[in-house]
Design a protein around this nucleic acid. Structure first.
Lengths: 154, 154
DNA sequence: TATTGTTATACTCTATAACTATA
DNA sequence: TATAGTTATAGAGTATAACAATA
């Protein structure tokens, strides 16, 4: 198996070069770098968009459910949601049925932003790994989904 | 294709559920969570080990080369290396040939630590995705390597 | 001028724990 | 007691920019 840098570089990473954790980190850093290189001036971060998108597709979703689904810590979600609320992109409502919780709904302004962002956000996704062919990209996604499933509910 | 949470959950993530960037983040978070659940008391973080390991396998490696190979920013590498030096695990030497740089070498104490850590660090790696079979894990690694290569030198 | 490493600052995401309000 | 959310604090890792020393 070909390892990263093996052809162009003097350094020997040994087993680390095929460590799944290491490879996942490299892959994510590459995506992150490219996102900010190409869309850094768009002023929306991947984490923010994922929350906004999830609320848009699940009106009235409870904040706690978002935490579980997107694997974001509660304390961090509080900040993310507040930031979105400060920009009038989402609204919060305390339901009478259970006044401990908060229901989140996207605003018209938020929906307009999602409609504007989603095309290029997912176009970016389609470009990732563009030097692989479509079949290989789908294989990678499928293997990642299996991996995540195998590491869930242990 | 099966998407995460689709069977057990009420929330609809739409296209986000198969977004490569999102999947990479989920996979990495799962690895991170498991590492600290199982090895949190070992007092060595994955990033630290990767630097220590790379120095052990490349005596006299230049700090800047480590930055490029492990994709760690220079300012962050300074802190990482200093932390390792403070624990007497690596030593620094300014070469006469180019006094701008620093050559890194592992100490006897550092080598002893690497010898102690490496077995369980890589055993952890072997356990990741253990519910997938070995062939599928190798496929995932292969696809990740292709992906990283396709996102390098753009 | 360019390169290597350091320092400083800031932001994201993580973790933990204490706290309030509600169930 | 347990749950939902908030607040506070800390740490890792990222980014940027300015800086000194050297090439």
């Amino acid at each position: 198996m070909d390892v990263p840098h093996s052809s162009s570089n003097a350094i020997n990473l040994g087993r680390l070069a095929t460590d799944i954790g290491f490879l996942l980190r490299l892959a994510q850093v590459k995506v992150y770098e490219r996102y900010f290189r190409e869309y850094g001036d768009r002023h929306i971060k991947p984490g923010e968009f994922s929350v906004l998108w999830a609320i848009a597709h699940n009106p009235g979703v409870r904040q706690n459910v978002l935490c579980q689904e997107l694997i974001i810590k509660r304390s961090h979600m509080t900040k993310l949601v507040r930031s979105l609320e400060d920009r009038a992109l989402v609204s919060r409502r305390v339901p009478d049925e259970d006044r401990r919780g908060v229901e989140l709904t996207i605003t018209d302004k938020g929906q307009t932003l999602v409609d504007e962002i989603a095309p290029w956000f997912f176009a970016f996704e389609d470009c990732l790994g563009e030097k692989m062919n479509a079949t290989e990209r789908e294989k990678l996604k499928a293997q990642l989904l299996k991996f995540i499933a195998s590491e869930t509910e242990d």
